[in-house]
Design a protein around this nucleic acid. Structure first.
Lengths: 140, 140
DNA sequence: TATTGTTATACTCTATAACTATA
DNA sequence: TATAGTTATAGAGTATAACAATA
């Protein structure tokens, strides 16, 4: 096993387990991790089309359609047809969506941010860089 | 938003997306990410009971039961009743299971290890440490 | 009674294939 | 014809609640 392959395996197992844990941190009546991730993306980088959502989140268009429909039904994003090209949508976070992000992040952070506070500052600095590198890797 | 909360959010989004990507790297006729993770755990740290599998993987017993049944059906782990306590199982990787780990890891690493090779050695060193810290976090 | 594991059931996440509407 | 998005369908992943077997 090469050096990078050993790292790949450890990273795969650790990331998989951590995601399971983070998914389970869903607050009562809260958004799922997938909904929250998509909502944050639209809020931070929107307005954007459905295709852009799929690309940024790394999912296929049918998956984006379903997640978007759920967020619209909850009133957390608005969905309007592009006047210049009626095939495309314009998706944007609503005020309720922004408020929901704050509330859900706070609830989810009760656990994660608390745990992060028990690590050394050096480890947090490490994770800060790691989050950027992992995000880049996910986008490849 | 506190410093740790900001980090928590970035880490959550990055880890979630990377897991999606890693899950999708399933080779044709290969094990799912969940099956592979469980099999590697039993192979490396086994023999162990079903309860230990659930605890190490961070899942509930019914989930462990289902995954274990699938791996047994594939002949990748053996499942014997503990002679000293008939409520408990003893789970161990078979030779076929060990071979399957090698094959599936190699197939999955074609993508991940290759991408990791395009990062700087400093980034790989960073990820090596991060994998350990993330693994610890997942186990909290 | 307490513990270990299983069964029944339901919800979430995601994909591929086939389709509709618009360009 | 090509593109943006949707619908239909299926498989994977996981949990809670209720149960069975054993200690």
């Amino acid at each position: 096993m090469t050096e990078a392959a050993g790292l790949a395996n450890e990273l795969r197992l650790a990331v998989h387990r951590l995601t399971r844990r983070l998914r389970a941190q869903r607050p009562v009546d809260g958004l799922t991790l997938t909904q929250l991730s998509t909502l944050v993306t639209i809020w931070r980088d929107g307005p954007m089309t459905a295709g852009e959502v799929a690309e940024r989140e790394g999912i296929k268009p049918p998956s984006a359609t379903r997640i978007i429909a759920g967020l619209v039904a909850l009133g957390l994003i608005s969905r309007t047809v592009d006047p210049a090209d009626a095939r495309q949508l314009s998706l944007a976070a609503t005020d309720a969506g922004e408020a929901r992000i704050q509330a859900d992040l706070q609830a989810r952070d009760e656990w994660l941010a608390h745990e992060l506070d028990t690590f050394s500052e050096a480890d947090r600095e490490l994770l800060r860089h790691a989050a950027v590198v992992l995000g880049e890797l996910a986008g490849r």
